[in-house]
Simulated scan of single mutants.
Amino acid sequence: MAETLLYTPEELTAFAAAMFRSAGMTDADAALIAGDLVKANLRGVDSHGVSRIPMYLERLRHGLVNPRPQVKVTRVAGAVAHVDGDNGMGFIPSSVAMDTACDIAGEMGIGLAGVHRSTHFGMGACYALRAIERGFISLIFTNSSPAIAMWGGRTSFLGASPIAAGIPGGQHPPFVMDMAMTVIARGKIRLAAMKGDPIPEGLALDQDGNPTTDAAKAFEGVCLPFGGIKGSVLGTLMDLMSGVLTGANFGGDVKSLYFDHSEPQNVGHLFFAIKPDLFMSLTDFGARMDEFYTRIKDLPRASGVDEILLPGEPEERREAQRRRDGIPVTANVVADLTAEGAAVGVAFPKARA
Score class of each variant (00 low, 15 high):
110 I>W: 05
296 I>M: 14
46 D>N: 15
96 V>Q: 09
175 F>C: 02
84 D>T: 00
158 L>I: 02
252 G>S: 15
148 I>C: 10
289 M>S: 11
142 T>C: 11
286 G>A: 13
127 Y>S: 11
127 Y>W: 11
278 L>S: 05
307 E>Q: 09
218 A>G: 01
232 S>M: 05
291 E>K: 15
89 M>V: 10
107 E>P: 12
119 T>C: 13
284 D>P: 09
3 E>C: 07
11 E>K: 12
199 I>N: 06
183 V>I: 04
156 S>N: 12
35 G>S: 15
236 T>M: 00
311 P>V: 02
194 M>K: 09
205 L>S: 08
22 S>T: 00
141 F>M: 06
98 M>W: 04
163 I>K: 03
20 F>K: 08
333 V>A: 01
294 T>Y: 08
60 L>G: 07
123 M>H: 10
179 M>N: 10
234 L>D: 04
10 E>T: 07
147 A>D: 07
326 G>L: 15
227 G>C: 14
89 M>R: 08
13 T>P: 05
296 I>R: 05
226 F>R: 08
312 G>N: 06
199 I>Q: 01
311 P>M: 09
128 A>Q: 04
59 R>I: 01
34 A>C: 06
58 E>H: 14
132 I>W: 07
319 E>T: 14
132 I>A: 04
74 T>K: 14
199 I>R: 07
77 A>V: 12
311 P>F: 14
341 G>E: 13
248 A>G: 08
210 N>L: 07
138 S>I: 01
166 G>A: 01
342 A>R: 06
213 T>G: 10
93 P>L: 09
40 A>I: 08
293 Y>H: 15
242 S>Y: 04
